[in-house]
């Protein structure tokens, strides 16, 4: 329950961030402009709207996750608000988890708004919605897990380094994580067993963002398999749990100066 209170306070805190509204505004603009773009691409209208729209959710969601995530813990330490809080009967892990869940809730709200915008654009284009449009929600679900992962990374880095460095690390992993599949591919091609071993290790160690991306098939309204979604969700949960575990261990040993 304490976690819930910390989370709700974190939510209150994050909805006060101006950067949140700027990013949300950009995302909505991008979704709106997809309507304009679709005008000039005959026959591809729907695909463009879904593709651009979902990309906007992923991209701007990631930015929100990083920009707010890196400040979550850092700010509390920097402004010394953490002093009076941690002196109260809460465990440090409760604090971290509360912070994390609070930002996830913020992200959930934002993703919901952006998703609603995509549906509004589709509705405008097709003068109605069809059942097949429900597929978009699967893509959104996976994007949400992608964001959950990014948030956990930002939180982990911010539990021991400055916001700027945390942003850099998280962003770096986010980029690498999108080329993760290529890494495995490269490992298979190379002759050297050392390099291929290294690639394997990195492949499993680094986050694999490819697991969360079903934007293309969904844009074509191709069905997605439940097993793919399920596996991705399980992967996301496991990875988040590990990263949060690391954050907790780091945070548990911190001295607040």
């Amino acid at each position: 329950m304490k976690i819930g209170h910390i989370a709700s306070n974190t939510f209150k805190e994050s909805v006060r961030e101006k950067v949140l509204y700027n990013l949300l505004l950009f995302a909505l603009l991008m979704i709106a402009s997809s309507l304009v773009l679709s005008e000039i691409s005959i026959g591809q209208e729907r695909k463009i709207i879904i593709d651009l729209g979902l990309s906007a959710v992923s991209l701007f969601g990631t930015m929100i996750a990083i920009f707010i995530g890196i400040g979550l813990v850092y700010k509390e330490i920097d402004k010394r608000t953490i002093y009076s809080l941690l002196a109260k009967p809460i465990h440090r892990w409760e604090f971290i988890l509360g912070k994390y869940l609070g930002l996830l809730f913020t992200l959930l709200v934002n993703v919901a708004v952006m998703t609603a915008a995509i549906y509004a654009a589709l509705f405008y284009l097709e003068r109605g919605l069809q059942w097949s449009h429900g597929l978009i929600l699967w893509a959104v679900l996976l994007i949400f897990f992608e964001l959950a992962l990014t948030t956990s990374l930002a939180l982990m880095f911010s539990s021991f380094s400055t916001p700027l460095l945390s942003a850099a690390f998280t962003f770096f992993l986010w980029i690498i994580g999108h080329f993760n599949a290529d890494l495995k591919h490269f490992g298979n091609l190379t002759e050297s067993s050392f390099v291929s071993g290294l690639c394997d290790v990195l492949y499993y160690l680094l986050p694999n963002y490819g697991n969360f991306n079903i934007i293309q098939p969904v844009a074509h309204l191709e069905p997605v398999t439940a097993s793919f979604v399920g596996t991705s969700v399980a992967y996301g949960l496991l990875y988040v749990a590990l990263v949060l575990g690391c954050s907790l261990i780091i945070f548990q040993h911190r001295n607040f100066k």
Binding site: I82, Y83, L86, A87, H253, N255, F256, K257
Partner: peptide
């Protein structure tokens, strides 16, 4: 701070 678990 040590008493409050803020420092070890």
């Amino acid at each position: 701070k040590i008493l409050m678990r803020l420092l070890y």
